[in-house]
């Protein structure tokens, strides 16, 4: 076992630098304000709002992953990045699959829009 170096500047962890955190914080703030602004001002057409929200969300996730969690392709970050990509794939399968399957189930099998009052008369 290699002896642990005490009181030496840490070379093993990556914590970025000040400019990285400032950029990450600034861009995240702008993206957050853009998300809330898109909804609260009502400037966008309603059909486009959801797509814009998803784009802004993904953009902010990427910004924070790179600037705050220091994911990247550097040799000491590769395993973290690889594990994250596998997790992202699992998330896409679980969330996408659940929504897809239940949407189909709702649309094709359960007449949820129908109530006793609104059901068409039998004869």
């Amino acid at each position: 076992m290699k002896p642990i170096q005490l009181h030496a500047p840490s070379r093993t962890f990556h914590h970025g630098n000040l400019s990285g955190y400032v950029i990450g914080f600034g861009v995240s703030t702008l993206l957050t304000l853009a998300s809330f602004g898109a909804v609260m001002t009502g400037l966008l057409p309603r059909s486009a709002t959801l797509a814009v929200l998803v784009l802004l969300c993904v953009a902010q996730l990427l910004v924070q992953l790179v600037f705050f969690l220091h994911l990247g392709s550097a040799p000491d970050q590769r395993s973290n990045t690889g594990i994250f990509l596998c997790t992202a794939l699992l998330i896409a399968i679980i969330v996408g699959g659940s929504l897809w399957v239940t949407h189909n189930a709702n649309a094709n099998m359960m007449p949820s829009q129908m109530s006793a009052r609104r059901a068409p008369p039998k004869d």
Partner: peptide, 28 residues
């Protein structure tokens, strides 16, 4: 939504202050 924006701001700023803490740790 303004309330949620407040919560979001608190968490985002706290993420930044934690980062500043890690930079302070880096230089001991």
């Amino acid at each position: 939504l303004p309330f949620v924006l407040g919560e979001t701001a608190l968490l985002l700023v706290s993420s930044f202050t934690f980062g500043l803490g890690m930079l302070a740790m880096q230089v001991g």
